[in-house]
Design a protein around this nucleic acid. Sequence first.
DNA 1: CTGTTAGCGCTTTCAC
DNA 2: GTGAAAGCGCTAACAG
Lengths: 333, 333
Amino acid sequence: MTKSRRLTQRDVARTIGVSDMTVSRVLTGRGTVSKRTRDRVLQAVRELGYLPNRMAGSLAASRSNQVGVVLPSLTVGIFPEVASGIAFELEKAGYNPVIGVTDYDVLREESLVESMLSWNAAGIIINDFVHTERTAQLLRSVHVPTVEIMQVSGHPIHLCVGFNHAAAARCLADHLIAKGYRHFGFLGWHGTAFAASSRFGAIRDHLSEHGLSLAAPELFSSPPGVLEGKAGLSRLIAEASEIEAVIFGNDLMAVGGLLYCEEQGIAVPDQLAIAGFGGLTIGQAMKRPLTTISFPRYDVGRRAARTILNAMVGQDVTKISDLGFKLIEGSTS
Amino acid sequence: MTKSRRLTQRDVARTIGVSDMTVSRVLTGRGTVSKRTRDRVLQAVRELGYLPNRMAGSLAASRSNQVGVVLPSLTVGIFPEVASGIAFELEKAGYNPVIGVTDYDVLREESLVESMLSWNAAGIIINDFVHTERTAQLLRSVHVPTVEIMQVSGHPIHLCVGFNHAAAARCLADHLIAKGYRHFGFLGWHGTAFAASSRFGAIRDHLSEHGLSLAAPELFSSPPGVLEGKAGLSRLIAEASEIEAVIFGNDLMAVGGLLYCEEQGIAVPDQLAIAGFGGLTIGQAMKRPLTTISFPRYDVGRRAARTILNAMVGQDVTKISDLGFKLIEGSTS
DNA sequence: CTGTTAGCGCTTTCAC
DNA sequence: GTGAAAGCGCTAACAG
């Protein structure tokens, strides 16, 4: 059963006295084979324990079952769930995700995209709209579908799936304004990501239109977590003691903020309102559920994968899929 | 620059008047090429925007740059970090992880392993020791290195990287016993994973050897989170009011337990001690840092990847890499 | 140091 | 419904 040379289609063909092509037809499901031959082939495959070599198959057919997935991180924020959604949908269709992690570095992104294309990926799922010129050009020039995820307002190279970050940010700001807060703080990060910066930009512009103040020290250069939320809030309060409400760039930071308030005996929301961004479970599990914006993280992944799969078979796909967001009015505001 | 037919090595070779092989030699770095020719090749590659077709390369060389990674989840517990560690180390070496998510289903695991092997994966990284018979046989019969991660006590198919869960569990139990607790509760899950069940088994046996009581309702069938921690603790207390210390199967649950105690006004650790498992940041960011066992999640991923890479080049590798664990004595016990 | 010859294992295309 | 021939784009192995 285990030879030193791996079994080939030909071995299967020989044992039952048919040609290679017949085996190939049965296994790929393309072309016609009589029921009888098909059954014999399948049985031989099973008995021999034959595993096809997809490298050869993909080379010959010049198409592969792999979808390149290029994300900034597998641990931060939404990406674990996005990746899960992608994997789920791809695997259902017999495809595999080849995952690359850029760590928020567009040059690494570029070399990962190259690598994915070298593998003849059937499609590419990539984060955000911010790429190097070469990355964009590679993706434009290649004939496989590309889905840029997270953002929807902008110009996708090909397709995109996500939601409107600026609108979400404004929605959150409006909620806080309606609650009567006038002095705001923002704690986020200044990475390259279009999504994060468009959220901050929208909040800044929106508040300024309303003539409201915003203190936003730039502290972190990549998405921070609970500890940074605590430390950041402590510093923000020291710098801008008049603030009444703090918007955090993500839920984990906001939870950190909540924990800080608790430790310092700062009453939430009476002394200070707290808002997050993401809709993570942990935020909703706090004694005071976090006010935040939730959006369908897992579904962004699923939809991105489905979009690729549909585009591949030439099916008509929506160029821009806006999956929306939802304001969660917790009790921290 | 963008033709309809993709550029091949031959196109590069033709434009500078050398043979295909010379180009191949430059690009793979195998064999010798004069500095002058090499430079011309590289320049032509750049100018033409040539991207190699690794499908063809891998078929010809019958070896690939892809490592199959089969994990139960990309969102739960340690796996995001493990996956990151793997991706980091592989990408540094010019390899790509092809990730499959089993969702704790050994049959899905089996079909994913098949798929990885069809791609001629250079190696396989897979979770735990629990597989179907066929999965184990496939991995044994194939000539690529397999690394089973998380556990170290058991019989790896080939190689393994992780730590001793039973010892870690006993260490935690000993700590609690030393603190004087006598009536214990355990809230975990009863999945197929060897790691999780060996932790529970070790605690149960260890406590029983000391003649101590353990209430352990089996509530969840897959790794639960904060909400399940809260709900589980509520139920556990109702069922077994005499418990003095609760060990949670993971840190997220334990944080849920902490939040529950806070809401209910249960004094931690005076009325009830809480312990987790994992060493996540969130546990340490709580007002009372969580007592837990931490272990090098990211490094398990990195080491697994490095082990594959070393094994591939025939380098001598440690069959069993025990990366250890550490008791964090928080203030919840 | 470089070129030539043969494939890698499969699928495409075209016969019959 | 099935087979034969040709080749996907690259690399191993050997010559020179």
